[in-house]
């Protein structure tokens, strides 16, 4: 996909916030000394009077966000996924989730594609943590177009939202002219009848590429982009289960508790079909270039193709 334009969804996040600053006057952005990396610095430049750096203190930042929301503002609290969902988990749970406050969490640098920083910063647990909080919406956009649309959708949704963005430049697959983001509604990227590949975030592009490769071998794979992991588009997933009989999930996240688990829960309870999960197995990551790590951990089209063929016994 050498000719496809690429952009990291964290960049899209910062640009979207800046672009929406005038439209939503209650929009406030908080960061924890990572504005240059989370790209909220783009908002800071556009709207310095509504940007507040909390310093390296994520617990307090989430609490401040809660207080702002309780007083009518729409705060976006940003940090790396490791600190937003990990370190601050209990504050997100008790000060944002329990009172049901209108806080948006913009978590960047999610997953193994953080790269060289290594295991301490590669958060493969955030989707699992956030989806256990009652009332929390969890979004993981796949590209620039989807990420920008998701930011505005989060503003328009009254309630807590966790948004997961990546560090690595992701191929821009969606057309900004025609793309429509609907919270909780998955997108059928490609029709198929032999098997369904359910993907989220950076893995949507890999899944689409895998389906293309599979087609060349005579295998018809449906591809679903599940940008909203909670609430899950159960209707779309069950339709795929019924029509294709087998599901492979792909996510840049632990196979424990993420998209794969959500999909498995859904089909197990409603229409049991075999679900095979591709993700980070029960292990920590390590340092290395993002693209190499993704390959090593099997988060690539080649491994999706191999897994699908294995599932189909081909």
């Amino acid at each position: 996909m050498a000719d496809v334009k690429k952009k990291a969804t964290r960049e899209s996040y910062g640009e979207a916030l800046a672009a929406l600053a005038d439209k939503y006057e209650n929009l406030v952005v908080l960061d924890a000394d990572l504005a240059a990396a989370t790209k909220t610095g783009i908002f800071k430049k556009a709207c310095p009077e509504r940007f507040f750096d909390c310093g390296i203190a994520e617990a307090n930042m989430m609490g401040v966000a809660a207080g702002l929301a309780a007083s009518g503002m729409i705060p976006f609290a940003s940090s790396f996924a490791m600190f937003a969902a990990g370190r601050a988990f209990e504050i997100v749970r008790n000060s944002i989730g329990y009172p049901g406050l209108n806080v948006k969490i913009g978590a960047t640098h999610a997953g193994i594609s953080v790269g060289e920083d290594g295991a301490t910063h590669q958060c493969n647990e955030d989707i699992a943590l956030m989806r256990t909080i009652p009332g929390m919406t969890v979004i993981c956009p796949s590209d620039d177009v989807e990420a920008k649309a998701a930011v505005e959708a989060a503003i328009l949704h009254n309630g807590p939202v966790y948004m997961r963005f990546g560090r690595l430049a992701a191929p821009i697959l969606n057309d900004p002219e025609t793309y429509k983001f609907e919270l909780g509604k998955g997108i059928t990227v490609r029709e198929g009848s032999d098997i369904t590949i359910v993907a989220t975030g950076l893995m949507v592009g890999e899944a689409a590429e895998a389906a293309e490769m599979l087609a060349a071998e005579g295998i018809s794979a449906r591809v679903l982009n599940i940008h909203t992991i909670k609430p899950l588009d159960e209707e779309l997933i069950l339709k795929a289960a019924k029509e294709t009989g087998r599901i492979v999930t792909v996510e840049e996240h632990s196979i424990i508790g993420g998209l794969g688990s959500a999909v498995a829960d859904c089909v197990t309870e409603n229409y049991p079909v075999p679900v095979t999960k591709i993700g980070v197995n029960d292990e920590f990551g390590h340092s290395g270039p993002a693209v190499d790590l993704l390959k090593e951990f099997g988060l690539c089209a080649d491994n999706i193709v191999a897994t699908v063929k294995k599932v189909l016994g081909k």
């Binding site: 507040f52 617990a59 307090n60 930042m61 989430m62 609490g63 401040v64 966000a65 809660a66 207080g67 702002l68 929301a69 309780a70 007083s71 009518g72 503002m73 705060p75 209990e90 504050i91 008790n94 000060s95 329990y98 009172p99």
Partner: peptide, 20 residues
């Protein structure tokens, strides 16, 4: 005005309210 009880969190929310 705020759910609280997990210690150390209320003062942060109060900061957010004051900032608002």
């Amino acid at each position: 005005d705020m759910s609280s009880g997990s210690l150390g969190q209320g003062i942060s929310a109060a900061c957010g309210m004051a900032l608002a």
